[in-house]
């Protein structure tokens, strides 16, 4: 692997790994809290928010995008409440309806607006533009020590690296409150922990990860990474610490294998063109989950040993 790899594959793979990890980390807690749908929801709501932010500001800078996504999230919450109350519909269905409608609205909006000047179209929204995030200035591995070349790293890489670091630091700092309130909310409250703020902080962190990842890799990966690596990791261990470690490994593995398969897999089968890396990464994460379901050591946990253990 030489200069060509560094120039064309290193940064997309790194971005894929960082985006996957940034989503999988909060995904562990969302799945354990049975709020996995919220991760899914966030990644859908992000689209109309980003499109509206673009239409208003005319740029795809990070801050307006984040504001747009936050605004869309608020609209989504109001919409869900309205559907629940006025339509007398159960919460899960109300959520599903609100988020798919908002996403669909975002797609329509995107089609109607002139976004030819920037990387913002329906395909990009779904699958990102991972393959295009290459490192033009790189000459080879030595460029990693070359300040001038480093300055030419894609913005998306810097952004997702910062967000990934932020998510990691927050998870480490708030590990104990997160763990206690996820396991036993009323006990956490009796300790005086602000469980409402903890839950809200978790969702906001997931949202920030989703927006940063969406920008680079599209919504398919975001949805997959919130759920697949944590769910597969749960089947590998009975300890939360090790579950999170497994989920990060699975997330990174999905990103690397997905990128390689997308780029070279079709050639192995005699096809001419590479396929979408984002789509393949999400597919690999699903495959890992399927394998964990079939062969994971802790897959049949429900009720195990309860009878004999009296």
């Amino acid at each position: 692997m030489g200069a060509e790899f560094v120039q064309f594959s290193l940064t997309p793979i790194l971005i894929g790994i960082l985006a996957s990890i940034a989503c999988a980390l909060p995904g562990n807690f969302l799945v354990l809290r049975k709020q996995a749908l919220i991760g899914d929801a966030i990644s859908h709501v992000v689209l109309p928010g980003i499109v509206v932010a673009f239409l208003i500001t005319g740029s795809v800078a990070a801050f307006p995008m984040l504001l747009g996504a936050a605004g869309a999230a608020i609209v989504a919450v109001i919409l869900i409440e309205a559907i629940k109350r006025l339509g007398n519909i159960e919460p899960g269905a109300a959520m599903g309806v609100a988020f798919t409608s908002l996403f669909a609205g975002g797609v329509l909006l995107l089609e109607q607006s002139d976004t030819s000047s920037v990387h913002l179209d329906v395909e990009h929204a779904l699958m990102g533009n991972l393959e295009s995030l290459i490192w033009f200035k790189a000459q080879g591995w030595s460029s990693l020590w070359d300040a001038e070349a480093l300055a030419g790293l894609p913005d998306e890489l810097i952004r997702i690296a910062v967000v990934c670091a932020l998510v990691t630091v927050l998870t480490v700092i708030f590990w104990r409150p997160l763990k206690i309130s996820t396991f036993d909310e009323s006990f956490a409250q009796s300790l005086g922990l602000p469980v409402g703020a903890i839950g809200f902080g978790l969702v906001v962190t997931a949202a920030v990860a989703a927006v940063a990842a969406f920008d680079a890799v599209g919504s398919i990966i975001v949805i997959a990474m919130f759920i697949c690596p944590p769910a597969a990791a749960r089947l590998m261990t009975n300890s939360l610490e090790r579950q999170v470690a497994w989920s990060l490994l699975f997330a990174a593995l999905s990103a690397i294998l997905g990128y390689v398969f997308a780029g070279y897999g079709p050639l192995w089968f005699g096809a001419q063109n590479a396929v979408s890396a984002a789509g393949m990464i999400a597919a690999v994460s699903g495959l890992i989950l399927a394998l964990a379901c079939l062969f994971g050591p802790y897959r049949s946990r429900v009720g195990v040993g309860r009878e004999e253990a009296v």
Binding site: L32, T182, F183, D184, L240, R242, R301, V302
Partner: peptide, 8 residues
Amino acid sequence: SVDWDFPT
């Protein structure tokens, strides 16, 4: 009131 399947 808690999920005893929690990994701990």
